[in-house]
Simulated scan of single mutants.
Amino acid sequence: MAGISAAAVKSLREKTGLPMMECKKALSEAGGDEDGAIRWLRENGAAIASKRSDRVTEFGRFGVYADVEKGVGAMVELKCESASVVQLDDFIALSDDMAKVLAEGPGAATAEELLAQPSTIKPGQTLGEVRDDLFNRVREVFNIGRMIRIDGSAGGYSHNSSTVAGVLIEVEGGDNETAKDVSMHIAAMRPSALTVEELDPKVVENERSILTEAARNEGKPEKIIEKMVEGRLRNFYAESVLLEQPFVKDDKQTVGAYAKSKGMTVKRFVHWSLGEEPSAEG
C-alpha cells in the first residue's frame, strides 16, 4: 500500500463515505487510480452483497413521485434489513429517486431494468450504482419490492410513521395539493374500493345478509326490512368506499364531494402497506 498519499485516501473517502483503510486498500488495488478504486469498491461490495442476498428485508419505505400538471406518477417499494436504515437520508433519497426515474423515464418492467437507469441525484451514476455505494457504507441488503407507474395525472403520499404505507392515485383535473390530501386520506382510512360499483359483490351481499338477519332479530316487519337494510348499507359504503367516506380534514363532506369542489375526479388508487399482500386498488 506504499505510495498511496493521504490526500488521495481522503478524496476517495469524501466521495464514497467509506472508512479510510478500505479506501486505501481500494486505491492500492487500483494502482492509485481513483476511478479504478471506485470500481473495485463496487465490485467488492457486489460480491459481499451476493453472499448476503438471502437475508430477510422486512423493513423499508415507499418512494413516491407524482405530479398532476406533468401527468406522471410512480411508486417504488425499497426494502432493507433494519429499521434504523429506513431513517437514513441517503436511503430516503434513493427510494424517492427510484420513483422519480420510474415516473419520468422510459419505464421499467423489472427491478433490474429500473436499476440500470440513470440516477437524478447522482449525475453519472445509475440507480444500481447508487444502491451499491449505499450498501458499501451500511452493509445491508436492499431489495426493490413492488413498483407501479401511472401514465397520466397523478398524486401520491408516503406514510412512514406508525405504519409504512404508500398511496398513488390517478386523477383528472385538480392540483397537487388536492391530490396529496386525497392520498393522505387513503393512507389513514384504508378504503376497499373507489366506488360502490367497484366493491366486491360477494362482500356486499354478505353485508346485506348480516343486516337483514339483524333487522329480523329486532322484530322488524318484513315489508320494511329491505328499506332498512339499504339505509344501513349506506353506512357500510361510507366506511369502505373512498368517494363515500367522510373526508378526514372535513367530515361534513365526502371525499368525492371534496375532490369535486376542487375540480378533481379520482379515477383510481393504489394503496400498499409494507409487508401486506395483496394491495388495495380501486
Results as ranks from 00 to 15, higher is better:
Leu233Met: 14
Ser240Met: 02
Ser84Arg: 04
Arg146Lys: 08
Asp90Pro: 03
Ala111Gln: 02
Glu239Cys: 03
Lys180His: 01
Pro246Ala: 05
Asn176Ile: 08
Leu243Glu: 03
Ser192Pro: 09
Glu140Ile: 03
Asp181Glu: 07
Asn44Asp: 02
Phe91Cys: 01
Ser153Val: 12
Ala8Leu: 07
Asn235Phe: 11
Ala37Phe: 11
Arg39Asn: 15
Glu222Pro: 09
Leu199Tyr: 13
Lys24Gln: 03
Ser11Gly: 05
Ile4Lys: 07
Val68His: 04
Val196Met: 05
Val72Glu: 06
Thr16Val: 13
Ala193Lys: 14
Arg208Lys: 15
Cys23Leu: 04
Lys262Thr: 01
Lys70His: 04
Val266Trp: 00
Lys223Thr: 05
Arg216Thr: 05
Leu233Arg: 12
His159Phe: 10
Ser119Gln: 11
Ala109Gly: 11
Val167Phe: 15
Gly124Ile: 02
Asn160Gln: 03
Glu218Trp: 02
Val101Lys: 07
Gly63His: 02
Gly174Leu: 09
Trp40Ile: 05
Pro19Glu: 07
Ile38Asn: 09
Gly219Lys: 00
Val85Ser: 01
Arg216Leu: 05
Arg42Leu: 15
Ile144His: 01
Ala26Val: 01
Arg146Thr: 04
Phe59Leu: 06
Ala165Tyr: 09
Gly152Gln: 09
Val138Ile: 15
Ile169Ala: 13
Val182Ala: 08
Phe59Gln: 02
Ser5Phe: 12
Cys23Glu: 02
Gly31Thr: 04
Lys180Thr: 07
Ser261Ile: 04
Ala214Asn: 05
Lys260Thr: 04
Asp90Leu: 03
Glu69Trp: 06
Glu29His: 04
Ala280Gln: 11
Ala188Ser: 14
Val56His: 09
Leu115Trp: 08
Leu88Asn: 05
Asn206Ile: 10
Val64Ser: 01
Leu41Thr: 09
Asp132Val: 09
